[in-house]
Amino acid sequence: MRSLGTIFHLGDESGVLRTSIAITMLIAAFGIGFGLLSGSFSILFDGAYSLIDAGMSLLALAVVRLIHSYTHITSATRRLRERFTFGFWHLEPMALGLNGVLLIGVSAYAFFNAVSLILDGGRPLAFDLAILYAVITLSACTIAAALEMRANRRIRSDFIALDARAWIMSASITLALLLAFCIGAAIEGTAYGWVAPYVDPAVLALVCLIIIPLPVRTVKQALADILLVTPPELKAHVDAVAHDAVRTHGFLSFRAYVAKVGRAQQIELYFIVPADGPARRIGEWDALRDEIGNAIGPDNPDRWLTIIFTADLEWAE
């Protein structure tokens, strides 16, 4: 049985995501409970938002484990490799895209509910409980974001980067809630007390307007990965390496096909060689592949590189 230190180890991607999920679940339960007690729709939304975020983090963790199992061959994962010969990298942009779309959808729904509450005359709120919730949650979100950003300096995971941004987003939301609750508590019982019922839905509407555009970039990148849109920088680099190989080894031309799928790079290079060129041993062709592969970049489990030599252009197109 693994210890808690192993399960929540911040030195690897899975451990960081597990830690994030645990904190998120606690905040979600805390938010939903305090939202019901204080009568705050914005706190209730914050808790529900955290619950969805936890669900997406669980999905991300599952995808990470699948990718890791594919790139690290063991007897337990050999069967998976036989059934999914192209790996699981394609699941990463799907999960990221789904996460972004869900967060946008939930925020849009909450915005319309907030507008409806404002039109209905607002909502009374227990500001003391709301302020207590905001202070505790803001501290938790800030700590979680700092831990993930620090861990991701070494891990460099898109999932952790997205999750860290989500924590920063949550901290910003909670800070806005805290300020609004403090203002509401200050004006309650004064000549401006009539404004107090509008504080909760108004700040919720404002927060939603800020949140809705934030995942758009992630969704856009995920869609590009799903559609196998060619990354310009990677394509330019591969083309430069291929041009050098053509010039150095006397090939006729080349065709390069490049895509980024989540963390993975998929590269196919076809070199058109003269049909009447000098014969080479298989080992020499393999040495050429190694040379070109090293020029493209260091080998790693998340790079799918195919290099083919042919005299028939049709094989390359």
Rank of each mutant, 00 (worst) to 15 (best):
M1N: 14
M1R: 13
L4M: 11
G5P: 09
I7W: 03
H9P: 03
G11L: 03
D12K: 11
D12E: 14
E13L: 05
S14Y: 12
L17K: 00
R18T: 05
T19K: 03
S20Y: 01
A22T: 02
A22G: 02
M25Y: 11
I27K: 02
G33M: 09
G35R: 06
G35E: 05
L37Y: 14
S38P: 13
F41I: 08
I43G: 02
G47N: 07
A48Q: 13
Y49D: 05
A54G: 08
A54H: 04
M56R: 00
L58Y: 07
Y70E: 11
H72M: 11
T74F: 13
L80P: 02
L80H: 12
L80C: 03
F84K: 10
T85Y: 13
G87C: 09
F88V: 04
F88C: 08
W89Q: 04
H90R: 15
L91P: 04
E92W: 01
E92P: 02
L96C: 02
G97I: 04
G100A: 02
I104P: 01
A108G: 04
A110H: 05
A110P: 03
N113Y: 12
N113I: 08
V115Y: 03
D120H: 14
G122N: 14
D128L: 12
I131T: 06
A134C: 12
A134T: 00
L138W: 05
A140W: 06
A140D: 11
I143T: 03
R153D: 10
R156N: 13
D158I: 01
I160W: 01
I160M: 00
D163E: 07
A164H: 00
T174S: 13
T174L: 01
L178V: 00
F181Y: 12
I187A: 10
G189H: 10
A191V: 11
Y192A: 05
G193P: 04
V195C: 04
A202Q: 06
A202R: 01
A202L: 12
A205M: 09
I210D: 00
T218R: 01
A224M: 13
D225Y: 03
T230C: 15
P231V: 10
P231H: 01
P231R: 09
E233I: 04
E233N: 12
L234D: 06
V238M: 06
A240V: 10
V241E: 06
A242K: 06
H243D: 15
V246M: 09
H249P: 06
G250M: 15
G250Y: 11
L252K: 13
S253L: 08
S253Q: 12
A256H: 08
V258E: 00
V258N: 02
A259E: 03
A259S: 13
V261W: 05
R263C: 12
A264T: 02
V273Y: 05
P274A: 10
P274I: 08
G277E: 04
G277P: 08
A279G: 10
A279L: 11
G283C: 07
E284D: 15
R289W: 12
A295L: 10
P301K: 07
D302T: 12
L305F: 07
T306I: 14
I307L: 13
I307T: 03
I308V: 13
E314V: 08
E317D: 15
E317A: 15
